[in-house]
Design a protein around this nucleic acid. Structure first.
Lengths: 245, 245
DNA sequence: TCAAAAGTGTTCAGACTACACCCATGC
DNA sequence: GCATGGGTGTAGTCTGAACACTTTTGA
């Protein structure tokens, strides 16, 4: 039996997945589809974030973890609660109202929004019951509820955080090349970075460790592989205190 | 008549006030006091944040604004939603349970926490019905519920934000001296800053504007007054994109 | 005239920017 | 042998850190 739900509080998850092959930062969305009773008319056909009500005896973090697991099967991914959305009319577009009539939740639901960082390749979307699909964060489809705003605010938070915290490595495989990291920064921030300066900067970090390995299976000169050492990073006193207003 | 409340969702406000005279960053707390029926025993006597339930037809931001206004009379202060707290047992200490019995709210209340930045001197605590009192953020009294954790997380957020955003000026009067700003940074961050370097850095900012005024009523050499120009700040393209992991 | 706080300059080291070509590899 | 992406070095500028004394004022 399903645990008892808190009907007016939900958790919505912005699942960011980086596709290292297409160099695209994607968001995982599920299809919201409803036909009229006679099946002649499509009433709702758009995409939304995954989310679910909070159970009465679980923490908000637990809810987020559970939602991600049900969608992707994954656990232990980087997770961040970034904002609560609770406007009284946040689910009040005509399509939302039609949709909610069919579902069992409050029109005035407050949602605690999380985002996750993972690798697109880690998610298997075959036999996925939610019709989940990846969309480039810069090229979203029609998005229902207020979820486009939620995605954009998550993305903003990610853009700012990736400049000062090593969360970028959550989006990359354990072994990566310097150019992988640069491509990812360029993709997230929408900027171009000088390869020589970037390379020097990264290689000089003690927590970026050159492995005894090179890429395999590439058709050109294989690149040196590196890893990120969280241990070393944590041990280095993160002297953040440069006032830079 | 009071609007209808959402019984399991509240907003709690961490009100930071800087006292420019004592150079102390304070938090405004209200007294939670309860005696046994025979008045022989004090059951609860500690401090908590102000907060209130969200009304059914108001946004979370509106709730925070309302709570601040009721406590201090102030509006238009800097406000930031920073985290939601929703653990099932966050209000489950023995004293909390005694207290909640006397009040009309859910044991499983999720709270959306905000913090405010303002000047201690702007708040008049005379004839305040909540027995509100300022406490230095580094020297808190016994705090009820999970509010100590909420205060600490707000403080952490403030520490990080004040390094890269000009929110520090929300804690200072419109006209301030360079040393006022330095004192405030030192007080928030718990560090010492070299006066010459700090002074040069600040004065070189285009949005720090020297006024044609000096301090009055001080018993020593009066210092030059400055103001912060939000207009100029906003116009300067905030080139945040220095990757500094 | 004295106590207190305001205000001032220089030097050094490290970090960031701009910029263009050679190299190693697989096909 | 050639196309492709990997990899490399230098000079100039800017910023931050360290560091101690003089000046101004009101009392």
């Amino acid at each position: 039996m399903e645990p008892e739900k808190i009907l007016n509080i939900s958790v919505d998850c912005v699942v960011f997945g980086y596709d290292i092959n297409t160099k695209s930062l994607n968001v995982l969305l599920i299809n919201r589809f409803l036909e009229s009773e006679d099946k002649k008319e499509v009433l709702v056909n758009d995409y939304v974030l995954t989310g679910y009500h909070v159970y009465k005896n679980e923490t908000l973090d637990d809810t987020a973890t559970r939602v991600l697991k049900e969608l992707t099967g994954l656990t232990n991914q980087y997770k961040k609660q970034f904002k609560a959305f609770g406007d009284p009319d946040r689910l009040m577009n005509p399509k939302d109202i039609i949709w909610i009539k069919n579902e069992a939740f409050h029109l005035r639901t407050t949602t605690i929004a999380y985002y996750f960082l993972l690798k697109t390749e880690d998610v298997n979307l075959k036999n996925n019951k939610n019709k989940a699909k990846w969309f480039p964060v810069n090229n979203l489809p029609e998005v229902g509820f207020d979820h486009e705003q939620i995605i954009l605010e998550a993305y903003e938070d990610l853009k700012v955080k990736c400049l000062s915290k090593p969360i970028i490595f959550k989006l990359l495989p354990d072994k990566f090349t310097i150019n992988d990291v640069q491509d990812l920064y360029e993709s997230i921030l929408g900027i171009e970075i000088d390869n020589r300066n970037f390379r020097r900067k990264l290689i000089n970090k003690k927590y970026i460790i050159a492995l005894d390995e090179k890429q395999v299976g590439v058709s050109k000169k294989p690149a040196q592989l590196y890893m990120f050492s969280k241990d070393i990073y944590d041990k280095m006193f993160q002297k953040n205190y440069l006032i830079s207003i």
